[in-house]
Simulated scan of single mutants.
Amino acid sequence: MSTRIPPFSSQHLEAACRVLADTERGLSGTQIGYLLQDIRVPDADANNTKWKRLFNALAQMQNQHQVGNHLILFINSAMNPVSYARDREAFIWRRDELNVVLAFSGFYVRDDGKVGRADKATTLDVARARVGRLKAALEARAVHEEVVKYCRAELLSENYFHAVFEATKGIAARIRNLSGLNGDGADLVAKAFLGQSPMLAVGPLATESEKSEQKGFANLLIGLFGAVRNPLAHATKIDWPMSEQDALDILTMVSLMHRKLDVTRKINP
């Protein structure tokens, strides 16, 4: 993150350091020293407790340079998924707890360990909801990873309107990748899945039932674009309210379509 980030408040910086240096689930003292060295931040208080040591090091750089970039750099380095190859639970705990405190500053930790931007939370309930309720609801439905890939930032900021919009755009992008076609919406689906010689097939297409499934899947895709994606592309959030329940239901349908696309094969160059 190369852009200048305003300094974090003392409370926000402390909260993040307490998570990163948590007594039971946080980084070890050795790890903190290595990571500070990695981002070229002086470790001037190495004998202090872990969270105070980290806080003092980052606060000193923040005061000296009047930017908050050093906390982001530290988190990006500390949350590198490679470091958690044998301890996924530690990654999940630190990411989720960091996302609660970072929400108040307008940031969040993505699944790749990098920090991204999100709308600022103003209450603890909102901050916790981004990590707890939404995450649990999606995981309970076993939503396909391709769904969240396209709308993670929007979900974290509870922007259901744009989350659904981005997720449906992701379906079109995947069809283009699988088929090599250009275009969008119903026209793209028709060229890829319909006609006597479709480019993509969800099954062998040897029986009438298999051909019917192919046509039905294509119609589902066309319906998604017609009933959801196209209206959202032309409407405003105010004129087209999107509840959490509606968003989760639509994202579940998008998930089903991605699972069908998982087994789709290209049959016509």
Rank of each mutant, 00 (worst) to 15 (best):
D184N: 13
R141C: 06
A172K: 07
D125F: 01
L155I: 14
M199S: 03
V126C: 07
A190M: 05
K135C: 02
A201Y: 00
M199W: 03
L138H: 10
A127H: 10
V147Y: 01
A173Q: 12
K211P: 04
F161S: 00
R128Y: 08
A129N: 12
D125R: 05
R130I: 02
V131K: 05
A201M: 03
A186Y: 01
A190Y: 04
A153N: 13
E210H: 06
E213C: 02
A129Y: 11
A218Y: 00
G185I: 08
S212M: 08
G132R: 00
L194G: 01
T168Q: 08
L194N: 12
L155M: 15
F193A: 01
A206G: 11
K211S: 01
R174H: 12
A142F: 14
A190Q: 08
V143R: 14
V126M: 13
A186M: 08
R152M: 15
A127Y: 04
L200G: 00
R128T: 00
E154Q: 13
A173V: 09
G195I: 02
E158L: 13
Q214N: 05
A142Q: 15
S197W: 02
G132P: 02
G170F: 09
P198G: 08
R128W: 05
E154H: 09
E158V: 07
L200I: 13
E139F: 11
E208M: 06
G195F: 02
D187V: 11
R133C: 01
L138I: 10
A129H: 12
N159Q: 13
T168L: 06
G195R: 01
N177P: 00
P204H: 04
A192P: 00
A140P: 03
A142C: 07
G203W: 03
D184S: 14
A218P: 06
Q196F: 01
E145F: 15
S157C: 13
A173S: 15
A172M: 12
S197E: 08
K211T: 03
R174I: 06
A136S: 11
A137S: 14
V147E: 12
R141H: 11
V148Y: 14
A173P: 05
E158T: 04
N177Q: 12
A136N: 14
V189K: 00
A153G: 10
N182D: 10
H162Y: 14
G180L: 09
E146P: 00
L194K: 10
A167Y: 13
A140H: 14
R130D: 03
R152Y: 15
K135Y: 06
K149W: 13
V147D: 11
K191Q: 09
E145A: 15
G195P: 05
S157P: 06
A153Y: 10
G183N: 06
L178K: 04
F165L: 15
S197R: 07
A201R: 04
A129M: 09
N219Q: 09
A206M: 09
E166P: 00
L181T: 06
Y150M: 11
L188T: 09
A172N: 11
V143A: 15
E154S: 05
L156A: 10
L205D: 00
A163H: 12
C151R: 12
G195S: 05
K149F: 14
K211F: 02
N159P: 00
K169E: 02
V202R: 03
D125Q: 08
Q214R: 04
T168W: 09
E154A: 11
G185Q: 03
Y160A: 03
E145P: 11
V164M: 10
G183V: 09
Y160T: 03
G185Y: 05
K169D: 12
F161I: 08
A163N: 07
H144L: 06
E146C: 07
A172G: 15
